[in-house]
Design a protein around this nucleic acid. Structure first.
Lengths: 130, 130, 130, 130
DNA sequence: GTGGTCTAGACCACC
DNA sequence: GTGGTCTAGACCACA
């Protein structure tokens, strides 16, 4: 369900976090659904409990999940907070240098948009966009 | 020419690097053109030599610039290495989590592509690029 | 009578405890009046026996209720122990960080006192209390 | 500057956090001013670096401080985010049970408001309210 | 030197 | 059993 690359530059907690976000985007995890406990997932992935906890805390902080003291972790049943201006600014700031480099390397707008479009299709899976 | 935000999360060397890449993309820096020396730029920006050096070393490593012992630093006269498969994979890996979160937050494909398109326009500036 | 939010950060036993205290403050529960047994309340709320028991034990400990083996649970007929110095110190220690943050966030004394005053009105309900 | 009670129920990281907030409220720490590094403060207080770090991370998260990768920690030069509705609701939810108990224990509205008022004076120190 | 990440192991609160 | 807190010690990125 979650696969880690311990060699990668991306911190392990970020890999866990991003794959859970991707799972939510793909509707593999549905609102209200439970996630493995901190200890269970840590054991499963062969990593430390604190590393999983850090990923979970950030997901909680950003509104993706809820953490109950003893019922464990569930996907936010009310869905994820929708994009606000702060999010759009972060998105812009992230995309800007990415596109700058692509321009330099001769990746044209069409190719770039096509790539984005394909990635979108991974999540929406052919269904019409929400 | 380069403006730094010392408060930002983004490391200073990365800000320097990204703004030089952006300058190349906007054709403010042309192939063969000289850049300030490590010392000069560091003094100009009021930052440490090492920081500028790290940015320059990475830019050299990625083929954006050449560093001659005597002649100083110049934009790669042969242009930037064009996108290869390794680059496309990195691009994919970077965009994937970004788009996953956007899907979760209700940023539709059209809105996302429009944002990318606008950023592209900043660089190609109305000209029909590529 | 008691409504729980299983999602909240506040432990369930604390919710039970606080709502009973609020009920006493509002004179919905009068001195000498009976409360449901641990079992009955737990069944009613759909929670664990231990959880209700913990709330009751603390209420007993603090003098709000009496627990008889046979007669069950009753609101302390002699009323709640009045504030002593220990209580006033706890109150101070709790309010202090709360007010510190309010000062930082620009919540002025008048606004804060007004909020407290409104909450008091919920309990005294127009009557001239104390 | 910061005094800990290792025996208290309040977690150590919360004590650190609250005392820094109190320091900001009292204007002992001014916007832009530096705070001790994670390691320095931990050594000073005789506690673990991670405990200080947790306090700092939460203060950063709530907008009280900024954390620079290598310049260390500074009080947010733009001041603390002002109270919003979410903050007011949290304040209400915190004060409600506190006041309920006070009502039960015979602490009248006047006495309670007077206590709050005195605590306010600790911070505003006789100066007119901001 | 700074903070960021990761690991390992302990004890406690909650249910 | 769950998550929350705290400790201890290691290595890395940044400047």
């Amino acid at each position: 369900m979650i696969t880690l690359d311990l060699q990668a530059d991306e911190p392990i907690y970020a890999q866990v976090k991003n794959q859970i976000i991707a799972g939510i985007a793909k509707k593999e995890f549905l609102p209200g659904e439970g996630l493995p406990s901190v200890r269970a997932l840590a054991a499963d992935l062969g990593i430390n409990l604190h590393t999983v906890n850090k990923a979970y805390q950030q997901l909680k902080q950003e509104g993706f999940i809820l953490i109950h003291r003893q019922k464990g972790v569930v996907i936010n049943p009310e869905g994820v907070p929708q994009a606000d201006n702060a999010y759009r600014e972060r998105l812009y700031a992230t995309l800007h240098p990415l596109i700058a480099e692509s321009v330099c390397r001769g990746v044209g707008k069409e190719e770039f948009l096509m790539l984005c479009s394909e990635i979108y299709s991974e999540f929406t899976n052919g269904k019409d966009e929400n």
